[in-house]
């Protein structure tokens, strides 16, 4: 975007040009169209803002939290109600719940990002290879996927954590291991719809290797539906992580993980509701944010909607 461009035609026109003059302009124009479609959905923008808010809070936790998340004042500050000094009150060990939630956002992001970058590529690879190769490869990979799908997700995650030992890293691993099969299914279904198309045949006729075709021509077509699905699953991942934390198999004390915080607050849920309520609300808002974002991405990225 040089000054001369901005002078002759507006930035918007430059982005929407029917005759892009460079690779960069074509790519930016495409992104701009997707962005416009995304922002047309108000709720999706709300979702995006929630997730951006989560990222900002996690990044600036040290500055936003007035107290230590792990060290409390056992003598004077046990189970205080929300007040100006302690916005969300304090828990049974005298720790400030607001500070714990702020620091807890880091663990939520940590879980969500790690699960996404472990599970999504595994699912994508298994699905596209199975779909493109067909035959025995397909049968074997898909039966393995079926085996994983046959177990309820939380039960399988519980089994893995029980075997690996409690802790947030193992919880992440367990969730990742149990959440890739649906992604493999989606990627395979997408691959099956494009593998016999003329444009894939055309690349085969160029002499491209199967590896190249899967990586450069099929995967890009699967990625948008996968991004949508992963985003929509984020809420489920947060809940599973919180569930494992609640059962004492995820994050271990004194880690300020939201699920574990609810678990420790449930003893006082009737008298001191804020101890469990505040992290519960945090989980609710972030899950809602991911769901809204996922819906918006579906509108913006889904190849079946519109002429992308």
């Amino acid at each position: 975007m040089t000054a001369s461009d901005a002078g002759s035609l507006s930035r918007r026109e430059w982005l929407l040009s029917e005759r892009p003059a460079s690779r960069m302009q074509a790519r930016l124009g495409r992104a701009y169209v997707a962005w416009r479609r995304f922002t047309a959905n108000r709720l999706a923008v709300v979702g995006l803002l929630i997730i951006l808010g989560l990222v900002v809070v996690a990044a600036l936790a040290g500055m936003l939290a007035p107290y230590s998340p792990t060290v409390g004042d056992l003598k004077n500050a046990r189970l205080l109600a929300p007040s100006a000094a302690h916005w969300f009150g304090t828990d049974d060990l005298g720790r400030d719940i607001y500070s714990r939630i702020v620091y807890g956002s880091r663990w939520t992001l940590y879980v969500v990002i790690l699960v996404a970058i472990i599970a999504a590529p595994i699912g994508l690879l298994v699905g596209t290879v199975a779909g493109y190769a067909g035959g025995w490869t397909d049968a074997i990979l898909m039966r393995i996927t079926d085996i994983f799908l046959a177990f309820p997700k939380l039960v399988l995650a519980l089994a893995f954590v029980a075997a690996l030992g409690p802790g947030i890293e193992n919880a992440v691993l367990a969730i990742a291991i149990t959440s890739w099969p649906p992604y493999a299914r989606i990627a395979r279904a997408e691959t099956l719809t494009v593998r016999n198309s003329d444009y894939i045949k055309a690349v085969q006729l160029m002499g491209a290797s199967p590896f190249r075709i899967v990586l450069r021509h099929i995967m890009p077509l699967c990625i948008s539906s996968l991004i949508i699905r992963v985003t929509l699953d984020m809420a489920g991942i947060i809940l599973t992580a919180a569930g494992l934390g609640f059962l004492g198999l995820g994050a271990q004390p004194p880690l300020p993980e939201w699920g574990a915080m609810i678990a420790s607050g449930r003893r006082f849920i009737l008298d001191q509701w804020w101890v469990a309520g505040a992290p519960g609300a945090a989980i609710l808002i972030v899950s809602l944010g991911f769901n809204l974002l996922g819906d918006g991405l579906r509108d913006a990225l889904d190849p079946r909607s519109g002429d992308q």
Partner: peptide
Amino acid sequence: FQDPYGSLHPR
């Protein structure tokens, strides 16, 4: 190919 609408990669 016969169908120019199907023989070019959409992305």
